[in-house]
Design a protein around this nucleic acid. Sequence first.
DNA 1: TATTGTTATACTCTATAACTATA
DNA 2: TATAGTTATAGAGTATAACAATA
Lengths: 164, 164
Amino acid sequence: MSSVESPETAAHDDVRGRELQLGLHGQRLGFRVRRLHHLLSERVVEAFAPYGLRPGSLTMMVLISANPGYSQVELSRIGNLDKSAIVTIVDDLEKRGLAIRGRSSSDRRRNSLFLTAQGEKLMKEMHQLAMASEQPLRDGLSPGEYDQLFELLEKARALLAEEK
Amino acid sequence: MSSVESPETAAHDDVRGRELQLGLHGQRLGFRVRRLHHLLSERVVEAFAPYGLRPGSLTMMVLISANPGYSQVELSRIGNLDKSAIVTIVDDLEKRGLAIRGRSSSDRRRNSLFLTAQGEKLMKEMHQLAMASEQPLRDGLSPGEYDQLFELLEKARALLAEEK
DNA sequence: TATTGTTATACTCTATAACTATA
DNA sequence: TATAGTTATAGAGTATAACAATA
């Protein structure tokens, strides 16, 4: 594999084959969450690639569908998206005929967002793809573990959210 | 709060005060993970701001410390970082006197990475800050819940990792 | 030929600030 | 004054490809 010049350098010089250690990051919940998020995100981005849409677009479609008529600012809060990021996403959804902006008649500063029939259809289709990208987790975890992970993630989120 | 012109538009026109719904995203584990990751990341970035360092720099320091002498490519795999991203981070760590690159004598293509004493010290200090940023989770979850969340995150990661 | 580190590039994401129109 | 949407901008993260040195 390789040669080592001296015993003094050997320990640090030829390390291939040793198992990688997490070190202090082994204690970090945030690091675990980041690694899982990275893998999940990778899979969903890949699944959406044929549509030319990013995960944020599905999030907006899902939120618009579940909260029809809401303003962009209101939807930005729930989706971890900035209000300026929403503009770009909704612009794109509108261009594709998936969503429409209507001015609120009670407050003409606000947009009231809705999905078109086509938008509803595509949203459901992409949601199925997203669920499929998470299928290994439903296969590999027991139903009890899966539900508990869900609940603990929500509980953790709520704990941090109330700190703000 | 606002006036509504007609019963037909009322349902969609004045929505303030209604509770926001997650819709289909309520079923998405990935969405839960993303929201938790966002909150955790926000807190740690804020904690590190006075140091002028980003979370990726601590990750690299922790991994270098736990795996002294490893190459950049090897460390990139475990840290969810691209090998080209590592270059920038290690450049910065070296400039600050926190890490050193040494050429491997057995394979002169490879860098063998080490932390300086100062790097070790700062890494431990930043790790404490990072742990403190997660403290609300240790306070709000029971020890059993906390451990279980940890284990389930790891199990989930492993399930997705073996798909690749 | 393949791999390590490097450089360059581009695209997305995020955060911020400023502007407008409305309230 | 404050808010909703918009626009512009800059910084960080990510992904890709190409290159030199080395294997």
